[in-house]
């Protein structure tokens, strides 16, 4: 059984202009000890679907329907109090912006010791010792000094390490990493990703890795879910997507074409996906990607495709999942 199973999740936001369907029938699973990469453009519902798991939505957001099962336990029906126990303890989050996700007036020690004190009921002194261990675990040099410092005295990479230390403090089963490397420069990004990989091996934590960077997903993920307009358009093992796939969603295809590769001939222009993500209140009928899809037919504009399992382990939400056939027709 999967550690985390999200089924037909619908998360909506009430706004002045109507209901925004930010997450629209999303399903994915996270296996124990594995990494699920969730890829998509901004506004595709990656973060919202992840935040729905912890029920950390803004006040106008709500889970309309669907089920989130963590270790066989339904999370959507838990009370506030029970959710407090899950958060930070069983499921933790690392945020994108290490700059702002640490409280500016707390020292590192106080930040990192908080989960120990809240979830494990440790005293301040005991927690402080554990903090040093945690900081060593995330490869922070001279933790005795860093522990007394304030976030603004740390570099971005160090801050993200502190964030990771904080998130992993209570040995969570799942770590939701919401674009943890986006705000970092490339060398630091590589270090952080390596650290996460190492920690996953050491501690066996499952990671849900949210990013818009296909390269990072390729490096990190075991499975990949590609999201578009609040839906999972393709779900497949990373190897399948980044290898030579037989089946693929046109969106995934477009994404892959839009990144430069070493084997791309120098005279070939990178292909961009035309158009923009539709406004969340004016989603098209039929396939959500149809207006931007170069393979779109009349059927696509009227009828909405289902996520179809085209081969074991791979699901594609398209009427024409076969890459070769599609290209021939187009």
């Amino acid at each position: 059984m999967s550690l985390l199973e999200v089924r037909d999740l619908n998360t909506f936001f009430r706004t002045k202009h109507g209901i925004v369907k930010a997450v629209n029938g999303v399903s994915y699973t996270v296996e124990a000890g594995k990494t699920l990469g969730i890829v998509g453009e901004s506004g595709s519902g990656k973060t919202v679907s992840a935040m729905s798991i912890l029920q950390l939505l803004d006040t106008n957001g709500f889970i309309e329907s669907g089920s989130i099962k963590f270790d066989g336990r339904e999370l959507t029906t838990l009370t506030r109090r029970e959710m407090y126990e899950i958060r930070g303890n069983d499921i933790s989050v690392i945020f994108q912006e290490p700059m702002t996700s640490l409280n500016p007036v707390f020292t590192v020690e106080r930040q990192v010791s908080e989960p120990f004190m809240v979830h494990q009921g440790l005293s301040k002194r005991e927690a402080a010792l554990r903090v040093l261990d945690m900081l060593r675990d995330v490869r922070i040099p001279n933790p005795e000094v860093v522990t007394k410092q304030y976030p603004h005295q740390l570099s971005g990479g160090m801050r993200q390490r502190v964030m990771i230390a904080m998130a992993l403090a209570c040995r969570p089963r799942i770590l939701i990493a919401d674009e943890p490397s986006t705000a970092l420069d490339v060398t630091i990004q590589a270090q952080i990703l390596k650290l996460m990989n190492d920690l996953q091996e050491e501690k066996g934590t499952s990671i849900m890795f949210i990013t818009h960077d296909l390269g990072v997903v390729c490096q990190m993920a075991d499975d990949v879910a590609v999201m578009y307009c609040g839906q999972v358009v393709e779900m497949a093992p990373a190897r399948t997507i980044f290898g030579k796939p037989q089946f693929s969603h046109p969106y995934t295809e477009g994404l892959l074409f839009s990144i430069p590769r070493l084997d791309t001939p120098s005279d070939v222009r990178l292909e961009a996906i035309p158009g923009a993500v539709p406004h969340p209140l004016k989603l098209p009928d039929g396939c959500k990607f149809a207006p931007r899809c170069k393979y779109a037919t009349e059927r696509c504009k009227v009828e909405e495709p289902e996520l179809v399992e085209v081969q074991p382990g791979q699901g594609v939400r398209c009427f024409y999942p076969d890459l070769k056939e599609r290209r021939k027709d187009g």
Binding site: L56, Y84, G88, N89, F95, S101, P115
Partner: peptide, 20 residues
């Protein structure tokens, strides 16, 4: 984000308001 982070850490609302 530090408020969201604190929430994600499972810290209770009262503590977030008055201690964070």
């Amino acid at each position: 984000e530090y408020v969201t982070a604190a929430k994600a850490m499972g810290i209770r609302e009262g503590a977030i308001i008055f201690r964070h």
